[in-house]
Amino acid sequence: MEFGPHLLLATLEGAVGAAVLALTALGLSLVFGVMRVVNVAHGEFYMLGAVVAWFVASTLGSAPATGFVAALLIAPVCAAVVAMAADRLVLKRLHYDPEATIVATIGILYIMQQTALMGFGPEARPVAPPFNTRIALPWVEWGENGLALFYPWGLSTTSYKLFVIAAAAAILIGFALFLSRSRFGLIMRATQLDRETALAFGIPVERVYSLVFGLGAALAAFAAVLIVPIQQAHYLMGADPLLLSFIVVIIGGLGSLRGTVVAALLIGMSDGIISVFFSPTLAKILATLLVALVLVFRPQGLYGKKRA
């Protein structure tokens, strides 16, 4: 394949990664923004979503589409329930102290990951996509009679990958509306802005925290259900999305939702493209180093505003 078509292919793969990453990072950013909790176990809620999707799909068995739709509904709810239980049992009792919650969520990370190892096993398991038509993509080139359209070999995507991008975009837009228009969105923003004042105005801050933690986990689980027909469910699959989400949230500015989405597109796309042309490990080293330095020299992130 030539460079042009190859780049288009890499961009498409990158867009799928970016779409899923935007959802996952949004969950992390939401939890950090509202609760000031750095949830190190976030990647495990993603893993939980994928594992539940596999269980649901393999139990329902019959048609891939029924199993997939059921998973899309059940997995985020499961993740949210587990997250809210973790919030009630652990985080609340720590009074959301930033450093203690990091240590606690590291513990939760290992508990979830190792429970998955015991219940789900060490194998990677696939989930069938509900539909998967191959779509060949055209490419233009100067031929003998001017511009000509042709289909290079290997340049194709699937209808499912396009669906992932569309579904993620729909959720993101829906979430933005939910945050700006709905009553609960208003309550969340109020809690984020000033916890004490929100409390004084009668907002049940602890219940809001619980719901936000559940919502963050549900977003990660939803992203995982979308990706699991492309990648496979595995008990260690939470590590990469966690690292990438951290990078996104830090670059986008801790707690800034718009920055998070912009950064997710940037990081997801460049991760996809760089990994196609260069070594993925090198790409990860450079990205991690860059982000650590951003955190050192520009803690408010590239898009965030300096807090007073």
Binding site: Y110, I111, Q114
Partner: peptide, 8 residues
């Protein structure tokens, strides 16, 4: 798992 439970 033990390490996780112990940390929490």
């Amino acid at each position: 798992l033990i390490a996780g439970v112990a940390l929490v």
